[in-house]
Design a protein around this nucleic acid. Structure first.
Lengths: 164, 164
DNA sequence: AGTGAAAAGGATTTAGC
DNA sequence: GCTAAATCCTTTTCACT
């Protein structure tokens, strides 16, 4: 899908405040409200904008314990299998296949240590998991609060990627 | 701050669709639109809802390369120092102090490998960083798309946390 | 193809209760 | 927290470039 500079700015604006009115966004990008809506509709239909969500303080809703878990899997385990398994556990907020020692990295969020341990047990019970290595989150320093200057807000290829 | 069961459901609804109208949310939780707005205003003021954002497909905006980097720091490095440093780099979308071998885990998102390498170099140049270990993301299996059944959508302490 | 203007239908928000 | 009313936004249609 094709997205131009104006689309980029609309995306940045929505990332910073998903409840902004089309008129407000239009003022930022010098477009009328209907024009903005048409572009947003197009971006949504094209899968560029996957949805709109509220940024919640996890602690405030009682999810105070977080961990990243490296998964070591049996030889013939597909990413799809890992993904399907990860989605079965509500505590999983992120899952990635990775290069390096481990096969996958799973981001867990739980109510407390006991809950986290329980989720971890469930995860380890998956047939393809041979072992795990956990990193408990002690403090969240930065966490996906798009501050208009984040990835979505900057040009697609910032600065340039020349090698040195 | 105090949040009741109705607040929880409103949060879940907004996490699933931040652009839902107050009337729609009200229909889900059996409240009138103004009542929902008052609660949302209160939740925002109390910091429970930190904002509203669009969920963007990183690939669509040209950020195709992602990595998790374990940071090993010098003895007397504070979380605040690491957090401040992390926020200086726009490629950082998450940063956490963790238990285990490393001191911190940083989630990076970049346009391509060259850009990622450049960001990593900048990060390694921070005075308190002694060494790093990178895990390149090969595929994103799950990534914070609150499907109404995620953390924010479930009761604060799901199931119970009894030990076995 | 894409934009702006206008009108009809809703949503938000401020009241009063 | 609800209802009601005024204001503002959204969304469609249509004409223009």
């Amino acid at each position: 899908m094709q997205i131009d500079a104006v689309d980029q700015r609309i995306i940045a604006s929505l990332a910073a405040d998903a409840r902004a009115t089309y008129a407000d966004i239009g003022a930022q990008v010098s477009l009328s409200a209907p024009a903005v809506k048409r572009r947003v509709d197009r971006l949504r239909a094209g899968g560029v904008i996957k949805g709109f969500t509220a940024v919640i303080d996890p602690a405030a809703v009682g999810w105070t314990t977080e961990a990243f878990v490296e998964l070591f899997c049996t030889g013939r385990t597909t990413p799809a299998q890992i993904g399907a398994a990860a989605r079965r556990h509500p505590e999983v907020v992120g899952a990635y296949t990775i290069s390096g020692e481990a096969d996958a990295l799973v981001h867990l969020r739980a109510a407390d240590m006991a809950h986290l341990e329980q989720a971890l047990e469930r995860l380890r019970a998956e047939r393809f998991v041979t072992s795990t290595r956990s990193m408990i989150v002690l403090s969240r320093l930065v966490d996906g609060v798009p501050s208009a200057a984040g990835p979505a807000g900057t040009p697609a290829k910032p600065a340039a990627t020349r090698s040195r």
